[in-house]
Every structure is written in C-alpha cells, then in structure tokens.
Design a protein around this nucleic acid. Structure first.
Lengths: 217, 217
DNA sequence: TAAAATATTTAGACTAATCTAAAAATTACA
DNA sequence: TGTAATTTTTAGATTAGTCTAAATATTTTA
C-alpha cells in the first residue's frame, strides 16, 4: 500500500513525463509539490526501492510501468470525483481541485468503478482533461496545431514545431511553457492573430507563432 | 486543523461517553482504536492541550463542547457518506463502514452540506443510526424498553433498569454489553421471550430480562 | 485494610516525511 | 576547458504517532 504522499509524487512525475523525454528533475518535483529538493531525493530513493520509478542519481526519474499504473489510477480517481462534485453537488469547476486532491487517495476499486457507472462513464473531467478508464487507458489524445482552434477552445501546450533558440527565447520571455493550459480568447480576422489566456495572463500571438504551437485537448 | 487520528480519538470518546456518566478510560479507547494504552495517554495529553477533552490523569476523559462538536461533525460526515454509498453507488449496508471511515475525514463544510442536500437530508444512516444536522443536533433519541420492540427491530443497548450484581453478572456471562447493537429475531408468543442477535451471537431472553433492558433506536 | 491484580503513565526508542546546512556532482559559459 | 553557477545529494535534526518495558497509581479482594 502506498501513502498519500507517495501517490502525489508519482502523479507529479507522471504529469511532467508527458512533456519531456528525459527524466523528471528533482527540482521540478520539489517546486510542484512545494517541498525541498532534499526531501524529494529521499522520496525518490524510497520509490525506487519499491520499483515504482527508475532513478539514477543526478539524472532525474521516469516511472516504471507499475508506477505509471498507480499514477493513472490516482488521476482517474481525481477526475471522476471532480465530475461528481460539479455534476451532482453543484460545485463550480474552479472550486473542485483541492477537494479532489483529497478524495483521489481513497483506495477502493469498487468505490471508483461504481462512481464511474453512477456518473455514466464520463470521458472528460470538468476542466476537459480526459479520464483514464479502469485499465488506465486514456482516450486517444490528439495533438492539434493552435491555428486550428476556434475562440473559447482550450487545451494543454504540449509541443513546438520550430524549436529554434529564437522561438524558445520568445516563449520563455512570455513565460509560456510546455504544459501550460491555454485558452483562445479571440482570433482577429484581419491578420489571424490569436489572443490567448494562460496562467493568469494574456498574450497576442501572430499567426506564424500560433502555427508553431501544438495543443492537446 | 485536526489530524485524522485526533478525529478518530474524539469520535471514540464521544461514542463511549453516550453510555457512561464517568470519564472514558484509557484502556477502553485503546481497545477500540487497536492501539496501546501508552499511545492513548500521549494523545490524550495532546487533545487536552488543544482544549478538546477534559483530562485528569488516571481518571479518564470527557469531551469539551469544542471536542464534542468535532466528534459530531465527523459522525455526520460518516453517516452521510454511508447513505451515499448505499443509495447512490449500490453498496450493501454492511460494506460501507471502512470506506466511510476514510471519507469522514475530508473536511469541507460545503462538500458535506451539498452532499446532505443531494441525498435529500436523510435522518438516519443505512444502519439506522441518526445523522446529526449541520449544527450537530441529533434528532431526539428516545430510549425504549426492549419489551416494546417487535421482531426485526433493532437498536443500541443503552441502559439497564435493574443494575443488581446478579443481573450484571448475567449480562457479562453472555457478553451482552452496554453499547451493543441488538436485533430482535423473534418473540415467542407463549412466554414473551425474546430471541436476539448481537455481535455475531444469538441469545434467548426471558420476558423479565427483556424488561430490564433499554434500547435506543 | 493491605496485598494482589489491574490500569495508567512515563521513559526512551522507532518510522515516515520533512527540514537546514554542507558537500558533491553536473551544467553553463567566459 | 576550467571556473562559476546551479542542481542534487548527504548528514543530521525535527515532528507526529506509535511501540515496549518499567514505574506508579488505582481498584479489587481476601
């Protein structure tokens, strides 16, 4: 049996793994979990001895398939509880995250599968994120070019076509990072520029920049 | 904020307080929570410094009103989750206790009040126990004589009229204790004797014994 | 009512998860 | 490419909740 804390580490590692081919770094995890790098190192050792992650000192971590399975199950729980809170208990979609962070750790297959059925097997949570099924399978996620999106659509920034230094500098200057959730506010018909919102800020992207950005929804 | 563990102690103390006028003893709590008396002593000191219990060394504890309020809120959570599991997620009434033990510790007034409304403000959980309202008020519990019960009714053994040594010895010989949940299996019309079930055993009580036993339902 | 039995508390230790500070390894860049 | 900056790890400490064993208090009973 894994503790709440262990599950939170696995979940964090899983999420960062989606947007990088390399191992996830100690500092990245520490920032996400509001803890210190030294605490992360301790936990990584522990997770490695449990065969939940592949850990090589100084080179970050990846999940083993056992670790990934646990992460996916926690994510499934989280997203199903969010659906429940919004659809049945009248919560707003932006009020449910913290509660779902607690509920997700209640470990009962029967509970979560019955909840899934009660909610009529939803495929996405209230934020639009896909819900893994009971075998941990996530509905085919397809990546599309930002320029194909319409106003009010949104998704996660997952990939850049042009990864030149210049372009990456541009992104970094605007604190627009892989993994960020982006919403299209409007598209200016005159020049096809995109006004977007992400992480509490707004930005206008030219058409050529939009064409460099891929979104997963 | 109180930990899960602290809440479990308060809940245990609350339940034992219902059936005794004196303070609840260290050993009683230890047995209930599957822990050691020394661990209980440590926790009692901690709860006392938080003003949740009245603790006098060697003389057991009672809850302060602040402690009672917390215990009642945890019990409310527990019982509402049990209703949810049985009525909405198709659990059997005897499968829900352990899950409710986990769910009860999720602290969100909004969550529990919305759940209450979603379930249509139930007054009793699937085991028949009353659900405290949001102010911690429990619907008038009335104690009735066992002889007034009919077959298939049940409740908690809370009081004895004749507390003579003889009678108490009889109860103790049959491991029939205050606090036990008792179900009437059948009543023999010939002599008004009661066949009851409790704690995985059955027993036949004469009419005069039944008249000494009070039940809360 | 005093010795025996029982209950409770204290003392000291352990584990999980965390921290700070220092040491060591890796990466960046002049 | 070697020094500086950054990242990661190690060492040692802390906290909550628990434990065992020993000490102490209360209760039972002869």
């Amino acid at each position: 049996m894994n503790s709440f804390t262990e599950e939170n580490y696995l979940k964090a590692i899983y999420k960062f793994s989606l947007t990088t081919k390399k191992g996830v770094s100690t500092n990245t995890i520490a920032k996400k979990l509001n803890t210190k790098a030294s605490s992360v190192t301790d936990m990584l050792k522990k997770l490695a001895t449990k065969n939940l992650i592949n850990y090589k000192k100084y080179y970050g971590v990846t999940l083993t398939s056992k670790g990934e399975q646990i992460a996916l199950s926690v994510i499934r729980n989280h997203r199903l509880w969010e659906v429940f809170l919004v659809e049945k208990l009248n919560f707003k979609w932006d009020e449910v995250h913290d509660l779902a962070e607690e509920l997700e750790h209640i470990k009962s297959e029967k509970l979560i599968n019955n909840l899934d059925a009660f909610l009529n097997f939803p495929t996405n949570d209230p934020h639009g994120d896909p819900i893994p099924n009971k075998n941990g399978k996530i509905k085919n996620l397809k990546m599309i070019n930002m320029s194909e999106l319409k106003a009010n659509e949104e998704g996660i920034f997952v990939y850049v076509k042009d990864s030149s230094d210049k372009f990456l500098k541009y992104l970094s200057k605007n604190k627009l990072e892989i993994g960020e959730r982006i919403k299209i506010l409007e598209i200016e018909p005159f020049d096809n520029s995109f006004k977007i919102a992400y992480n509490n800020q707004q930005l206008i992207l030219s058409e050529s920049i939009a064409k460099n950005i891929y979104i997963q929804s």
